[in-house]
Design a protein around this nucleic acid. Structure first.
Lengths: 260, 260
DNA sequence: CGGTTGCTTGAGATCCATCAATAGGAGTGG
DNA sequence: CCACTCCTATTGATGGATCTCAAGCAACCG
């Protein structure tokens, strides 16, 4: 429930500049027809990778924001800590995810950003992204698409918390993660790595950790999935989607040139 | 639970062009130092007002989006209808609210837009807004600020659904509405008009209508508020904020020029 | 080996949903 | 003005979903 206080450590040399932006680009390609020059330009924006331990704050609640965070490795989250000590995770960020809409002006963040696992996070200067978007239409399109997907995820999160049962929330989350991780090549057909704790899941889904545990057991006993160690195996994705009221259609907003 | 099928009626002449954008401008002034020329330009974008009956769909779920909707009068909402018939309202729109972030490209909307009360809604051409923002920095700043506030509201909605009790959700909503309505001059110090039904509130807050009713009675009996007819009176806003874990600070992201 | 963290299980309490019935209020037509 | 209807608000009773507290277990790690 309580987040650790360990800050980021120094620059991590194992991330060469190309490798850093690879997952990010892989995702953006779903949103716009990026050319080699667009990708080269985007790569240049990604700099200053730092490592964080699990539970470390990346951007503390209430601090001023001038850079965007891009997750290179590990999982992170946006969260809010309430006065009564409860925590709600409002968004989950996977490798390749940009943690804020690209064009916001500098501002004070109302919610913090924290690592859920050991993570490597790069900083992207706000102004540079805005400039790139202003000058290169395909980059702008890709970034707007990314923003659109992020907003859709957030709204679906609201729907889950408001109108889905505990098992449905879990199932829906797993379906969503499967799609997102597949987009960046981090899932295979029947599952993926789930590196966060059940307590994190509970803070994400608005449940207690105990109930997450029991609902997971329900899903296992129904034969829909297995969760051993960090590996989540999905035995029957179609049935899981049906059970969770998951509609993959909303996931890929059509590109403008594809609109009727 | 089920939305009506009545479409919009024809153009409503009672809205002159100036009056149409007045509330919208009033809100944006909180986000950027708009000059007369900026406001004039923004006013020109707002066109094509239409009236809708309560419960009418404004933009149905699954349709293509090329225009932005601006609420001139009445309350509206973004909602999702689940396969099992449940409805979740993901955002509430008040007079002066732009219903989508300004810059999104045309896309298929995953969630519909509906009137909750009789409403008048104008359409704003997407391209025109983007052009204006590109050319006039203050307009861009105001619109980004608006987007930022909308995103913050959405995240706070997630926190409510995930980690606040029924009474806290209601209290938090009323505090939020009080701030938002005050920004456009539609609330006075001790309350405002609440024109939606308890059933709408339940779909917004992820509760049952019966439980909304009971939680409202709790709040009344605690002496925090009164709700007679459509008028909501707040007797002790500070105490209500405390009880609801409402933090008004996040509401006004600082302008870029005010950052340290 | 002891300490820590995360997972699992049980029992009891609480919050909230559902079902069903009644009451109030606004509009409508006679 | 009354009877009627629809919609919304209210109330009661009951069951279910989920929470909390508490304890035990398993894995990992220095």
């Amino acid at each position: 429930m309580i987040l650790g206080r360990i800050g980021g450590t120094a620059f991590t040399p194992r991330w060469a500049n190309d490798a850093m932006s690879e997952l990010f680009l892989r995702k953006l390609r779903h949103g716009a027809p990026l050319q080699a020059e667009d990708e080269a330009l985007l790569s240049c924006l990604v700099q200053g990778a730092r490592s964080y331990e699990a539970r470390a704050d990346i951007v503390p609640q209430g601090s001023a924001q001038r850079m965007l965070s891009l997750v290179l490795d590990g999982w992170a989250c946006r969260y809010k800590l309430l006065a009564n000590g409860r925590r709600q995770i409002t968004a989950l960020f996977l490798p390749g995810d940009l943690c804020e809409p690209f064009g916001v002006m500098p501002h004070v963040v109302d919610q913090g950003l924290a690592a859920l696992t050991p993570a490597v996070v790069a900083s992207v200067p706000l102004g540079a992204v805005q400039d790139a978007a202003r000058r290169w239409p395909r980059i702008a399109e890709a970034l707007w698409w990314d923003l659109l997907v992020a907003a859709t995820l957030e709204r679906e999160h609201i729907v889950s918390l408001g109108r889905r049962s505990a098992s449905e929330r879990l199932g829906h989350l797993f379906c969503e993660l499967h799609v997102r991780l597949t987009m960046v090549g981090l899932a295979d057909e029947d599952g993926f790595d789930l590196p966060i704790t059940q307590s994190d899941l509970s803070d994400l889904l608005g449940l207690s950790a105990v109930h997450v545990n029991r609902s997971l057991q329900d899903l296992r006993q129904t034969g829909l999935l297995a969760l051993r160690g960090r590996r989540l195996t999905l035995y029957d994705i179609d049935r899981l989607r049906e059970l969770s009221l998951f509609e993959p259609a909303w996931f890929h907003p059509r590109r403008s040139d594809a609109l009727p």
